[in-house]
């Protein structure tokens, strides 16, 4: 703003501006604007308004119950808070998963390696008839042989043994010897 315009009042400043921009509008400014109001309008306005204010019931300001919560969420949705919140949620999810996985009563492990010796032994005893003898011997982990328990080795070497022969052989077995097979 130059020195000249600093000294001018807004009316003079406007006149100069209009003279430069639009002489027509400068000329129009000199004539009256044309709007009128009813006589005594402004004198009565005060009373009219006071009357209206007294008769208009005040609208209670109702704040919905969710508005404070929404305001809190607005804060949390700011990028830096949102990132922190997301990180916390991810950590909580991972931590929760790990805790549940190792907690007592959790879903049993499906891997055979998770079975205890007792569980295996109990299963074999229950389902002993489902195993053939060779498998039992192989799984025993030691070099047990049928001769050790008084059975002819030919049983599992292509020669078939009749049922009677097998029963006879089993009857001759000492129960303690039979246990050594396992």
């Amino acid at each position: 703003m130059n020195e000249k315009s600093k000294d001018m009042n807004p009316k003079e400043e406007l006149r100069d501006e209009l003279r430069a921009l639009s002489p027509l509008l400068e000329q129009l400014k000199e004539s009256k604007e044309g709007f009128q109001v009813p006589e005594t309008y402004f004198q009565n306005l005060e009373d009219d308004l006071m009357q209206r204010i007294q008769w208009t019931p005040r609208q209670p300001v109702r704040t919905p119950w969710w508005q404070p919560l929404a305001a809190q969420w607005q804060i949390l949705l700011q990028p830096r808070y949102a990132m922190a919140l997301a990180s916390i949620l991810v950590l909580m999810a991972v931590g929760g998963y790990l805790i549940v996985r190792t907690a007592p009563g959790a879903e049993p492990c499906q891997d055979i390696a998770c079975l205890t010796v007792e569980e295996v032994r109990s299963y074999i005893e229950t389902n002993i008839h489902d195993f053939d003898t060779r498998t039992i011997l192989d799984a025993g982990g030691k070099e047990a042989s049928f001769e050790d328990v008084g059975l002819p080795s030919s049983v599992f070497e292509g020669e078939t043994l009749s049922e009677d022969e097998l029963l006879d052989a089993l009857e001759g077995l000492d129960p303690d010897d039979l246990e050594t097979l396992f």
């Binding site: 004539s31 009256k32 044309g34 709007f35 009128q36 009813p38």
Partner: peptide, 9 residues
Amino acid sequence: YFDGDKLQA
């Protein structure tokens, strides 16, 4: 409540 001339209108 308007008594302006043609130009004002």
